[in-house]
């Protein structure tokens, strides 16, 4: 089903190991759910499963790097103070950003929203911010 293919691809694109994440999600989708789960049937056709598993792993990794780069750009473009924080200490900022990507779902399309969410995460006692 198209929506399931897309759910898997977006989730893999945001993962640090996109090929591994994709394989895990495809396996989960093909196992289906519990008997009382409305999604009990496999959620991918045989073709969709084959296409996903045949995706070039390096291409997936490059895609993931670009998707996460775009998320980073939304953060620093959405708030000039966050850009300055990055410039002051790139390594520390990057560590917080990686934790943010793991803990906060990538739901924001606009820089100011992404930056606001990042600032809220970074300014609390979140992992990696200490």
């Amino acid at each position: 089903m198209l929506s399931e293919v897309q759910r898997i691809l977006v989730a893999a694109a945001h993962a640090e190991d996109a090929p591994a994440r994709l394989r895990a999600l495809v396996d989960e989708a093909c196992r289906g759910g519990a008997e009382d789960d409305a999604r009990a049937a496999p959620r991918l056709t045989a073709d969709e499963r084959a296409w996903l598993l045949a995706m070039d792993p390096d291409g997936l990794r490059v895609t993931s790097l670009l998707v996460r780069k775009l998320r980073f750009e939304r953060v620093v473009r959405g708030d000039a103070t966050l850009l300055r924080r990055f410039e002051d200490d790139p390594a520390a900022f990057t560590n917080v950003f990686r934790a943010y990507c793991r803990d906060v779902a990538p739901t924001f399309a606009f820089p100011e929203d992404e930056a606001r969410a990042f600032r809220a995460y970074a300014d609390t006692d979140a992992p990696g911010t200490g």
């Binding site: 198209l2 977006v10 989730a11 073709d47 775009l70 399309a109």
Partner: peptide, 14 residues
């Protein structure tokens, strides 16, 4: 984007 997650980069279609 899919399932309320935003990739921004257009991703491939089957």
């Amino acid at each position: 984007g899919a399932d309320n997650a935003w990739a921004a980069l257009p991703l491939p279609l089957p």
